[in-house]
Design a protein around this nucleic acid. Sequence first.
DNA 1: CCTTGTTAGTTACAAAATCAACCATTAGCA
DNA 2: TGCTAATGGTTGATTTTGTAACTAACAAGG
Lengths: 147, 147
Amino acid sequence: MTDDDDDDFDLDLFLPYLLNQAAEAAGRDFQAVYKARYGIGRSEWRVLFHLGQDGPLTAKEIASRAMMHKTKISRAVAALAVRRFLTRERSETDRRCEHLHLTPAGQAAYRDLRREAARYDARLVSRFAPEESAQLRTMLRRLSGAR
Amino acid sequence: MTDDDDDDFDLDLFLPYLLNQAAEAAGRDFQAVYKARYGIGRSEWRVLFHLGQDGPLTAKEIASRAMMHKTKISRAVAALAVRRFLTRERSETDRRCEHLHLTPAGQAAYRDLRREAARYDARLVSRFAPEESAQLRTMLRRLSGAR
DNA sequence: CCTTGTTAGTTACAAAATCAACCATTAGCA
DNA sequence: TGCTAATGGTTGATTTTGTAACTAACAAGG
């Protein structure tokens, strides 16, 4: 029998592990920015960005784009509404769902953080060659199940 | 002024976001395996793997390798001890720390999950060319701050 | 020895995530 | 119509995680 105790596995090369470590490391500092500047958490940040980028959306639409659970969305939206970063407008055609709009304050926060995100991203990929980072993004998208 | 509303930023290309999505997607199915099979969570799994791979370690050593906070380690170790996957042995030379050993049951679980992990990893990278996935791992390591 | 400081690890409490149950509304269809 | 099922969204209970404060042991300098 081949040695059962030593097949070719190295934890430090295990992809889910690597991805977690990298995601955590990459997210930490940026998280500190939006937390310190607007007192919001990750869910709130995501909702803010999706709304800022893709116009008014319903909670359901955000959930499917961000692959977030609906309770997270619900609470994030509530928190952003308290901060007057968005307004909810019940749909006329289907009164179950509501369209979420960023207020001017919300848009301002979005633009500010987007600028910050762009700089942060640039700093992250500065260690790589341009076509390397492009390929990295492509591969990550594929892993995310994106098309 | 250049249009403030449209600098070149796309959320779906933002690295921390991509990394999170990919990490979540990649981790989900494997998490289901060790959860269903041994009823342990991510922290427990990590501790188990570090111990299985790098022999007896103290909590501190695991923390530095896995970049996990010590409270997570502490709880994960406690949970694994309850399941009799490891034993704690107080150090003679420094009675603050304890050396953590996997029990035979712990080693069996480790080997089983390692095998599973290897297969899982292989399946993940099967979508990429071999040198692509190698490069991916390298870049992720760099992002994690690893040397 | 006795401070003072540091380190390994645990515990207590707050914030966040998960899960299930729950309205209100709409859709399918007899 | 009127029944049932499904959907968008919220809420509450439970668990998980993160943050501080804490204990116990060591270390260094007086």
